[in-house]
């Protein structure tokens, strides 16, 4: 797969990265390049190998073969330099529950060799920015899920990283919280020119904020690019879906549709709804056939590919594409 990051200077480069757990390949010959200042979404179902990939970038686990370069450094050889410049927020992030929010942040800051006075100033400022200023001196044990995620973001930012890696940052937060969090992430990445790598299985959220997405299935990156080019890729695959809605479904219509050259299959929905998959654009012919058979046509539309369809298509065909 051709993966380009445009004109930007690459900060993450993965080449043929593979991680085997026994016989099972969690990540399989992954090639990926991410440029500076980019917001990249790593999209895939649970167990696709997203977290493993992230762990390999940080040197938290060793690749079986292949190489990774983060900021020009090798994670297995110099994990410390990378960790100094890369912030990582694990999924299901944990804090010291019996300590206050500010204590937790200062601890992280001091582990990064930031002197105590500066650490406190930075922690207060960041809590302000993520909207937790009032809760700064409350114990983390009393925080809600959304507050924890925001605190996690502050925790990641306190070392002033060049790259932040967020593993499932939106997991378990309500829709409004998700919107706020994503807004916060994009704003931060623009203001500070931070490269953001975001993993998620929620495509709509990824669609909102990412410059580019990579689709990840069973350890393989099966598609990569911005949303537009991904949907074009799908179109070129040669199948088009036309959605049809009639008041009632005339019996003759099945035959009429199958009689049209180029119709691959007809999927009947409830009542008069159906989707017709065809190898070329037959929208007009299908409408005509429906009217010709005496049906009262309510709606006909050619489906545009959103990320949803891309996701479905690739995940359904993941195995075929992967093989």
């Amino acid at each position: 797969m051709d993966v380009r990051s445009g004109e930007r200077e690459p900060v993450i480069e993965l080449k043929g990265l593979t991680k085997m757990y026994g016989e099972h390949a969690a990540v399989n010959r992954l090639d990926l390049t991410i440029g500076r200042g980019e917001v990249f979404g790593l999209l895939g179902p649970n167990g696709a190998g997203k977290t493993t990939t992230i762990l390999m970038m940080l040197g938290l686990t060793e690749p079986t073969s292949g190489s990774a370069r983060v900021l020009g450094l090798d994670p297995t050889r110099s994990p410390l330099q990378i960790k100094r410049r890369v912030g990582y927020m694990p999924d299901d992030i944990g804090f010291y529950e019996d300590r206050t929010a500010i204590d937790n942040l200062i601890y992280t800051a001091r582990l990064n060799r930031i002197p105590p006075a500066e650490a406190e100033a930075r922690a207060r400022e960041l809590l302000e920015r993520v909207g937790l200023a009032e809760a700064a001196d409350k114990r983390v044990g009393a925080f809600s899920r959304g507050m924890r995620q925001r605190l996690g973001l502050a925790d990641v930012l306190i070392k002033k990283p060049e790259i932040i890696i967020l593993d499932e940052p939106t997991l378990g937060i309500d829709p409004e919280g998700v919107r706020e969090l994503l807004e916060l992430i994009t704003r931060l990445s623009r203001e500070e020119r931070i490269t953001v790598l975001l993993s998620s299985h929620h495509l709509h959220q990824v669609q909102q904020v990412c410059d580019r997405v990579g689709l990840f299935v069973k350890g393989r990156l099966i598609a990569c690019g911005d949303i537009e080019s991904l949907s074009k890729q799908l179109d070129e695959d040669g199948t088009i879906t036309v959605e049809l809605e009639l008041e009632a479904w005339p019996d003759a219509l099945d035959e009429a549709l199958n009689g049209l050259g180029g119709v691959v299959s007809v999927r009947r929905g409830e009542g008069g709804k159906a989707s017709v998959i065809c190898s070329s654009d037959l929208t007009a012919d299908i409408a005509q056939a429906a009217v010709g058979c005496g049906g009262r046509l309510l709606a006909v539309s050619r489906r545009k590919y959103g990320l949803d369809d891309i996701y479905h298509r690739y995940f359904e065909g993941g195995e075929a594409h992967g093989a």
Partner: peptide, 10 residues
């Protein structure tokens, strides 16, 4: 869940 956060520090 604090171990993975800690281990991602330098």
């Amino acid at each position: 869940g604090t171990l993975s956060r800690l281990m991602s520090q330098p």
